[in-house]
Amino acid sequence: MTQGANFDLNARQEAAACANAEDAAVWRWFSDLYDQGLIRWCRTDRGWLVSVADRHVATTATFDEGIREAMARTQDADLPRNKKKDSSNREEKLR
């Protein structure tokens, strides 16, 4: 294998590792919010609508894009991310 081919292989492996780590972070975030009942989504004629904590945060063509956009938009906002569920607060909110 030539030096250039070895560099290309290393670059591809590093890119794959970064993509896997990003995917894992997105789906951990999604799972946490799903378990807490804080994320909702639906398919409409406009695309996928995604809401976090009763606030619409994304409308995209695909489900994957919608979840990623929702995560990106809630990172800087005052919306839940990976908080543990406070059942007393949730029950009060439902009344």
Rank of each mutant, 00 (worst) to 15 (best):
Y34T: 14
S51V: 04
I39Q: 00
D64T: 15
G47N: 01
W29R: 04
C42F: 11
R28I: 06
T60I: 05
F30M: 06
I67T: 08
D45Q: 13
W41H: 09
T44K: 13
T60K: 05
W41P: 02
G66M: 08
D54W: 02
S51W: 15
A53K: 08
G37E: 04
D45K: 11
T44M: 12
H56F: 10
G66T: 06
F30R: 13
C42W: 12
W48Q: 05
D64Q: 15
C42N: 15
Q36V: 10
R40K: 14
G66D: 10
R55W: 00
F63L: 14
R55N: 03
W29M: 06
V50T: 05
R28H: 11
W29F: 06
T59H: 06
R46D: 15
T60C: 12
D35Q: 09
D45F: 10
R46W: 13
V57F: 01
I39P: 04
L33P: 02
E69A: 15
Y34V: 11
H56D: 04
D35I: 07
L38A: 06
G66F: 08
A61K: 13
W29A: 03
W29N: 00
D64K: 13
W48Y: 14
R68Y: 05
A61T: 13
G37T: 00
T62A: 10
W41I: 01
L49G: 03
L33V: 05
T60F: 04
L33M: 00
L33C: 01
R40A: 12
A58L: 01
G66R: 07
S31Q: 11
G47Y: 00
S31L: 08
W48L: 02
G66H: 08
V57K: 01
D32L: 06
A53E: 08
R46Q: 15
R43F: 01
L33I: 00
W27M: 11
L38F: 05
V57Y: 01
D64C: 11
V50Y: 00
E69P: 10
S31T: 14
I39A: 00
W41F: 13
V50Q: 00
R40Y: 08
D35H: 06
E65R: 07
Q36E: 12
Y34P: 04
W41M: 03
T44A: 10
Q36A: 14
W29V: 02
W41Y: 13
W48P: 07
H56M: 13
R43A: 02
H56Q: 13
H56G: 10
R43V: 04
F63R: 10
E65L: 10
R40Q: 07
F30T: 10
W27Q: 12
W29K: 07
R28L: 08
L38W: 02
A53V: 03
D45E: 15
V50M: 05
W29G: 03
D35K: 09
S51H: 07
D54A: 09
D64A: 15
E65Q: 14
A53L: 00
